[in-house]
Structure formats: structure tokens, C-alpha cells
Design a protein around this nucleic acid. Structure first.
Lengths: 160, 160
DNA sequence: TTGTTAAACGTCATATCATAACATATCAAG
DNA sequence: CTTGATATGTTATGATATGACGTTTAACAA
């Protein structure tokens, strides 16, 4: 289980790499990685926090890439559907995926102070949720797993 | 780990019992279980599915108990804050708790066909989410765990 | 009982999040 | 270079949620 989000890292590189990976995957799968879609993913990648659709729309508008809500929502739908981004249900907001395109069941940790969001992965059929589902005879198709609390940096800051 | 929601049960009784339990707990904790709050909980208990705030508001309006959104939202806030009800983030909707007042970390299974919602409990600090949090140094305060899929009844129905 | 204060309620207005519908434009394949 | 599918631009509206403020009610001490 690896987690990306709270530690410092080579951010410029992470953006470039991620865009390149998605580009490759779109070509391989016959998906159109259009300018709006690419720009939305770049905007998401620039922050390791969740952005609301209208925050994204504001930036697109400044750049002349679209000014109406459906423009942002359609790009986000594309990214989410293809697992290049995720929706954080608790925040009604979106975040770039740290493992673009891989079929996975993400788990999020949301810092309530700095709004950073870290993504980790689990196997949904294992663990307590999987056990509860088996006991209930429930067939899981998708999972939403989000924890709110304090990231390591903000724990230190608030202890001081 | 016990789960309530997909099996048939004595529903009238479950409503009465739950209201009585909440009533007792409110008295013990000095909370005001007002008519609007009680009625909202009853409305939620009548269904084992999640109801939107405006669905609840519609019913309150029919009964003359309030007609503006804040009436419903304030009652729901009270119920959620005191763990007498939960918000299902994935649906932006609310459901009565099956273990009113107990301090617990609920887990939900949402049937995408019949919209039934079952609640189970886990220990958030254990399991894969707890492990991911420990590895990341993240301090969990609240969790949102929701699975979407098919309940036992709808699996049978769709297999037929 | 009454005065005081905190909590709850009624209401209006508005903020925030999201999509339906339809016309136009672009792209990939035959 | 046409055709069909996909993507975009735009208008309008639907759905979810909260801020603000005045009034009412409840809890409680004097």
C-alpha cells in the first residue's frame, strides 16, 4: 500500500509524467485527450487538493477554454470515467489520480486544515467492508472510502 | 459486525423502538427532541433508503411542519450530529441510524437498483484504511465508507 | 412568577453544485 | 469527401445547501 500526497516531491516532474502517461493510455485505448481535458487534468495536478468544478471552470474561463459549467463537468466526467481523476464525495470536488488509468479502488485521506488529499489503494473485497458485504450477501461494484482528519504537517502545527 | 437493512423485519416495531431510544437518549443528554426533529427521524425510519433533504421537506410541508429548506436541514444536522441519522455522501441524502446514539463508524451498502441502504459497523482504525493512515502519519477523525452494488434481492432478480 | 439567556424556528434571499437539451464543430473511417 | 460518432458551445434550469435576521420557545435562576 503506497500513499502519495503529504510528502514533498518533484511536483513539476509529477505533472509532466502524469500527463505523458495519460496521453499514452488514451492513444492506446482510442480515447481523445482533447485540449480541454488535458488542461483540466493539468489544473488538478498542480494541486494535491480537491478542486470544485467551478474553481476549475474559472481557470478555464481565464484561458478562454470554455465558460459554461458543462465544459468543466464533461471534462471531469471523462477523467473520472477513465480513472485519470477521482471525485471526492465528501467535498463535492475532484482530484487528479496518482495512478492514472490503473483499475483500482482508491482510498482518500483529507486534511481538514490544509485541504491536502492523499490517495492510497486497498482491495475492497478484503478488509472489513468486504467482510460486511459477504455477510450481507451484497455484491460490491464501487466503493467510496474517505477519511477526514489531520495530515502529518498540520498535526505538528496544531501541537505547537 | 452486524448489518441491518436487506432482510425483512418488524418495521413498525423498529420505528417505535428507535424513536423511543432516541427520546431516552435526548433526555439523558439534555437534547431537545422537538416535533420537527422527531418527525424527520420518523420519515427517515419509514424507509430503509436514503432520502434527499427536499424529499423530507416536501413531507414536512404537507404536514404543515415547515416549508423552507433550513427547517429540514437544521433537523437533519441535529440528527446527524448526534448520530441518530447519517448522511450518505455518494447520494447527497440521509438515512436513519440503526444504532442510534452509539458512537460508531458506520459503513453503508447501497443497492443501485432498489436504493435500499444497509448499515454495518467497522473499526476505522483497524483494517486497510487504518493501515494506510498509520503509514502516512494521518490522524483519522471521521470516515466515509460507502459501497455501491447489488443487494441480495436484486442479484436474484437480475439473474432471472 | 418573572426576567434572562440560549436554543430552536420561520422566512427570505442567495450561494453552490450539476445536468438536460440542442445546435455546431471536429475527427476517424470508409 | 462524406458519413457517423464524438466533442464542444450555449442557454436554461434543476438540485443541493447555507447566511442572515427577526420571532418564538425552553430552561433556569432570582
Amino acid at each position: 500500500m503506497e500513499t502519495i500526497g503529504f510528502e514533498p516531491h518533484d511536483h513539476a516532474n509529477c505533472i509532466v509524467d502524469c500527463i505523458a502517461t495519460v496521453d499514452t493510455q488514451c492513444k492506446a485505448q482510442g480515447l481523445q485527450f482533447t485540449p480541454v481535458r488535458k488542461r483540466v487534468l493539468e489544473i488538478l495536478l498542480q494541486e494535491h487538493r480537491a478542486l470544485g468544478a467551478y474553481e476549475i471552470l474559472d481557470r478555464l474561463r481565464e484561458e478562454g477554454l470554455g465558460s459554461q459549467p458543462p465544459v468543466a463537468y464533461r471534462a471531469l466526467d471523462f477523467l473520472v470515467k477513465n480513472k485519470f481523476a477521482h471525485k471526492i464525495e465528501r467535498l463535492n470536488a475532484f482530484i487528479a489520480c496518482t495512478h492514472p488509468g490503473e483499475d483500482h479502488a482508491p482510498v482518500f485521506m483529507i486534511c481538514r486544515l490544509c485541504n491536502a488529499v492523499a490517495e492510497a489503494h486497498t482491495n475492497p473485497t478484503q478488509g472489513q467492508l468486504g467482510q460486511a458485504a459477504r455477510e450481507a450477501g451484497f455484491q460490491i461494484e464501487r466503493t467510496v472510502v474517505e477519511a477526514e482528519g489531520l495530515c502529518p504537517n498540520c498535526q505538528e502545527a496544531s501541537a505547537a
